[in-house]
Simulated assay, not measured.
Amino acid sequence: MQRGAWPKKPMTTSSTLHPGDAADAKNPKKCGILQSTRCRSYREQLRSTQRMNIIHGFLVLAAAATVLGVLFFHGMEPAFGSEMTQLPLEGVTLQSLWLGVVGLLGLSGKLESEQEDTMRAFYCEQQLDTKRIFRQIARQVLNQEHALARLERLVQSPRNFKAVALLGPPGVGKSLTAMGLRQQFPWQENVHTYSWSTYVPDGVKKFHMIRNFMDLLKDCGQNLIIIDNLSACDYGIVPIYNKVLQKREGDLNAAANQTVLVVYIFDLEMEFYWQQYELLHQLPVDVTIVNYQPFGRQELSDCLHQEMRLEQRTLDKRRVFQILDDAMMNVQCNGCKGLRESVLQYGQHNET
């Protein structure tokens, strides 16, 4: 040994190797070294993504099964009777179902605007089902088959502007027809009604009120305007209003783009029936005239039995004859009006 040199310490394996390189060192995964590193959060993220994929897969399967089930049920509808076949499972309903499926799949955010545009386009471009509408009206309006058939032909017309005048004595179904048309009209936001015999005495003010309907007309679908309770002396508003609707100031393209159906309802007095009838038949040629026939005892009997069926009440024969006799005394002024009140007053509830 040289002088001044410190004795060297014997070298061992434990002093030269990194503790992690020792063959008998503990597994870092077991001793928890990775607990505080990014590896753990990454593995947890992978597990969470895997669980979400599994849940998403189940939702896709459930949505597909729902759509297939509804389509299968829709295809089997005729087997369940005529009433079931009237369920509107196509069109809006199926598209609503598709929106629900898209929501389950988590795609509603991307497709929301496109689906809204599609639904709006379907709403605006749907066809007017006149057969269904007038089938429903005929269940309420009795003994006016010719009038309803003539009105249905007009409503089916492809013209952009259609005007009709319903003529007849009170209580024969004119306003009831308009109410049925209004209720069954697919574009409810486009329906506008006005009762002419209001407390507004000035006819000019009344005209300005119905003129305001023009600002509410839309390009979407068809527009329906109903002006009720007109008398024969009010016939002068018809050509004026028709002209204003067809030639609108400040909106040259509106008349070409919008489809408008105007229904004028005239109550005729039986005392001067034919004079008023001839006067109203001088209306412009662009107005279709639909005549509602006056009622007699048989028509009143039909109305009475319908009211009994609707109210689910019965009347004995003596009471039926009495009600019909009273109704015939005012048939020219009331028609079938007032029969429901008689049924409610004198009828007995049907035993179930």
Rank of each mutant, 00 (worst) to 15 (best):
A5N: 10
K9R: 04
P10S: 01
M11L: 08
T16R: 08
P19S: 05
K26L: 14
G32T: 09
L34K: 07
S36F: 09
C39G: 07
R40T: 05
R43C: 02
R47E: 09
Q50V: 05
Q50I: 00
I54W: 02
I55R: 00
V60P: 00
V60Y: 12
A62E: 04
A62D: 06
T66D: 04
L68W: 03
F72Q: 12
H74Q: 06
P78R: 08
A79C: 11
G81Q: 05
E83P: 03
Q86T: 11
L87I: 13
V92F: 12
L94E: 06
L97D: 01
L99A: 14
V101N: 03
T118R: 14
L128C: 14
R135F: 05
V141K: 00
L142V: 07
L148K: 05
V155Q: 04
A163G: 15
V164N: 03
G168L: 11
T177P: 01
A178H: 12
A178W: 06
Q184A: 13
Q188G: 03
E189T: 08
S197D: 12
G203K: 15
K205C: 00
K205Y: 02
I210T: 01
R211T: 14
M214N: 04
Q222H: 13
N229P: 01
N229D: 15
C233Q: 10
C233K: 04
Y235S: 13
V238L: 09
V238E: 03
Y241I: 02
Q246T: 13
R248C: 05
Q258R: 15
I265W: 05
M270G: 07
M270R: 11
Q275W: 03
Y277P: 07
I289P: 01
N291Q: 03
R309G: 15
E311G: 08
R313A: 14
L315D: 08
K317L: 15
V320N: 03
F321R: 14
L324V: 10
A327M: 10
M328N: 07
N330P: 02
Q332H: 11
L339E: 10
S342M: 07
